[in-house]
């Protein structure tokens, strides 16, 4: 079950690179009180240390870190970039959609992953989310 409020979705965001995109998606979680600021650093560090494992599908990345890295409450934020950026993935670059996850434990983490996967497997919904013309209301309406 995904709970996405207006503050957790941002469209046509400008990001200069992958780290910037992760930070901007993470900032929404912090703004909404779901994670501490250090959680953003942990997501960036994970990406830098382990590589583009967070790229789950063509054009889509799910940055996340472990619960003890500063999660307050489980949640997910979605940002769509105005210009895609490269994450260094062999087949799925460049990335347009960045969904930052913060789970309080592995159960909540996997539930959110599955809910996101179900949403993004729906071709019509994915088309709406990826459409640069779609407004935040359009996107929130289908989630």
């Amino acid at each position: 079950m995904l709970v996405l409020t207006e503050g957790l979705v941002e469209l046509n965001v400008e990001a200069k690179d992958a780290e910037d995109a992760i930070r901007k998606a993470g900032q929404l979680l912090v703004n909404e009180g779901l994670a501490e600021a250090r959680y953003i650093d942990a997501m960036v560090k994970g990406f830098q240390d382990i590589g583009p494992y967070i790229v789950v599908a063509p054009n889509i990345a799910f940055p996340h870190a472990r619960p003890e890295a500063g999660v307050i409450e489980k949640g997910v934020s979605i940002i769509r970039l105005s210009e895609p950026v490269k994450f260094g993935h062999p087949t799925n670059d460049p990335i347009t959609l960045v969904c930052a996850l913060c789970g309080v434990d592995s159960k909540s983490h996997i539930e959110m992953l599955q809910a996101l996967a179900t949403l993004l497997r729906d071709e019509d919904k994915l088309k709406t989310i990826m459409n640069p013309e779609a407004s935040k209301q359009d996107v929130l309406a289908i989630i």
């Binding site: 799910f62 789970g103 983490h109 992953l113």
Partner: peptide, 14 residues
Amino acid sequence: VCGMGFGTSLMLLL
């Protein structure tokens, strides 16, 4: 297998 063993790999297994 995934980077952290904490989400993506479990989703893949399921």
